[in-house]
């Protein structure tokens, strides 16, 4: 994974400039968000369900179209570009989902190779061929999350934590400069959740990949984030370091006093892990 380091060049910041998102049904996802996420930062976005966390993350790779404003990933504008350009942006931005989003009938390797789709030549696209170099990249990615030995196992045979690691490997296989993670640990039990967060942090440190993570749990946010962004009703209401984000700040974000569920995925919460701790 050496070329990943060499790819890191200056000017790969993510810049939100007055970004608003309105869904077709009229719901406002984001309202006038302006942010700069510098290259290599580990950012955690917190807030209630429906506060716009997912919208924020998905607007970065164009899965949610931005209604107005400007959003740049590195040198590339994301807003209003054509499909081809958008695919270029996406190929440089890996994404991890709450539900892992694996094709569980396929092998781990095939799933990770999804991350190499953007590099396929036209004839390889046609027949679905991946060159040995791509397979080696996939192996490297699996190595980083420590499940190389599962490469040819059907994804459905893996535990939730392992599946999420496959999903991380899939994002890494893109050799991205940005990784987005939408509630990556909400479906996992607390120890596994911590493990996955550690993996993400390690990758962020080792490869210098900008990482933006949505989280429900505040303790995880404080523990791993370089910077915390608090969202409420589509607006950014807090932007600071983990130390600055005390309980007072969180109550502000959540709009009410905190409960044990908001704070952490304590062992008592194991049975409801994956459930939504927000009211």
């Amino acid at each position: 994974m050496t070329e990943q380091g060499s790819r890191a060049t200056a000017g790969r910041d993510i810049v939100f400039d007055d970004v608003s998102v309105v869904y077709p049904n009229g719901t406002k996802g984001l309202i006038d968000v302006s942010l700069t996420i510098p290259e290599g930062q580990f950012v955690v976005v917190v807030g209630l369900s429906g506060a716009g966390k997912s919208t924020l993350i998905r607007s970065i790779n164009g899965l949610v179209p931005v209604t107005s404003g400007s959003l740049r990933v590195g040198e590339t504008e994301v807003v209003g570009v054509g499909r081809r350009r958008l695919r270029q942006v996406r190929s440089d931005v890996g994404m991890i989902f709450q539900g892992f989003n694996l094709v569980t009938r396929r092998s781990v390797m095939k799933n990770v190779l999804t991350g190499r789709l953007h590099a396929q030549s036209w004839w390889a696209k046609l027949i679905g061929y991946h060159p040995p170099a791509d397979i080696e990249i996939a192996f490297d990615a699996l190595e980083r999350v420590g499940i190389v030995e599962k490469a040819w196992v059907r994804a459905s045979h893996l535990s939730g934590g392992q599946q999420q690691r496959v999903a991380i490997a899939r994002a890494l296989a893109q050799q991205p400069s940005v990784v987005l993670a939408d509630e990556p640990v909400a479906s996992l039990d607390p120890p596994t959740a911590n493990q996955v967060m550690r993996d993400l942090q390690r990758i962020n440190r080792e490869l210098g990949i900008t990482t933006v993570v949505n989280l429900h749990f505040l303790d995880l946010a404080r523990r791993y984030a370089d910077r915390i962004i608090g969202m409420r009703a589509g607006r950014v209401v807090f932007d600071g370091t983990g130390e600055q984000a005390d309980d007072k700040v969180f109550e502000d974000i959540y709009g009410r006093s905190l409960t044990a569920e908001d704070v952490s995925a304590t062992p008592t919460q194991v049975s409801v892990a994956g459930g939504d701790p927000a009211p």
Partner: peptide, 8 residues
Amino acid sequence: STTRPKAP
């Protein structure tokens, strides 16, 4: 690099 499992 660790050992790679062989493709089935």
